[in-house]
């Protein structure tokens, strides 16, 4: 990574929105992916309403697979495409070009492994943080722990897995992510959409409609899924490159 190569790196270059990988598969699959995610959720919805804990647990695995496939097919891994050109320039004159690794090998090394790492990171780091946030926002403290935890796991798979894949674990980048300073792209839009959707998902809980689906945490997870799809679509198209202004 650039920061490691040059620790006292001068003012950071302004962050640019993440572009999709430059191939037709990526351009096509990025639109199929949210449909698959929403279909998965719609397919599981009935059983989630019936008994949230086992259903949400079992949905985690297909969701992780979908997310890994998506990032591997569509997105540039961290330190990948963006800095590839820079690395090319930095090569010392006369240095031998390394033999290009095989396609499969490079696919696994460059994509599948980072994707798995992203999965591990979002489950290990983001989920507990999100669980705590949910509790602070009013999730039950003494009961429903598995529910809240699974809800946080779903949000973190949707929101943070692609982010970790494209941005890595650089502290300053993550400060910018949390501070909403990055320009919007489909990954960032997906994250903001997921969180905002989950936030809105709390609205129907107090209503006295006596519906089964009003129970914790169904509405939150539903909001997160819908928010993810909408945020990803809008972030990748309409709002791409825009920045969030607070003032």
């Amino acid at each position: 990574m650039a920061t490691i190569i040059n620790p006292q790196a001068k003012p950071r270059p302004p962050a640019t929105p993440i572009d999709l990988l430059n191939n037709d598969t990526a351009r096509l699959y990025t639109h199929i992916h949210p449909m698959l995610v929403l279909s998965l959720y719609a397919y599981k919805f009935r059983s989630i309403v019936e008994d949230p804990v086992p259903a949400l647990t079992s949905t985690l695995i297909p969701l992780s697979i979908l997310q890994i496939v998506y990032v591997a097919i569509c997105l540039p891994p961290t330190g990948g495409s963006g800095s590839a050109a820079a690395q090319l320039e930095k090569r010392k004159p006369g240095e031998k070009k390394k033999p290009a690794p095989g396609k499969l090998e490079s696919g696994v090394n460059g994509k599948i492994i980072p994707a798995f790492l992203s999965l591990v990171l979002s489950v290990l780091a983001a989920t507990p943080l999100l669980t705590a946030t949910l509790v602070l926002f009013g999730a039950p403290v003494t009961t429903h722990h598995p529910h809240t935890f699974l809800c946080a796991a779903h949000i973190s798979l949707l929101a943070t897995l692609p982010l970790v894949y494209v941005h890595g674990v650089d502290g300053e980048t993550w400060r910018e992510i949390v501070a909403l300073l990055l320009p919007i792209d489909e990954v960032y839009g997906g994250m903001i959409g997921t969180v905002f959707g989950a936030w809105l998902g709390a609205v129907p809980i107090p209503l006295d409609w006596d519906r089964e689906w009003q129970k914790w945490p169904v509405t939150i997870v539903t909001g997160a899924y819908i928010g993810y799809a909408v945020g990803k679509l809008v972030g990748g198209t309409l709002l791409k490159g825009r920045k969030i202004m607070f003032e």
Binding site: T133, R175, V178, A179, L180, L181, F246
Partner: peptide
């Protein structure tokens, strides 16, 4: 949460 985000900015 919003002021925490804002503080990061």
């Amino acid at each position: 949460a919003l002021t925490a985000i804002s503080s990061f900015r």
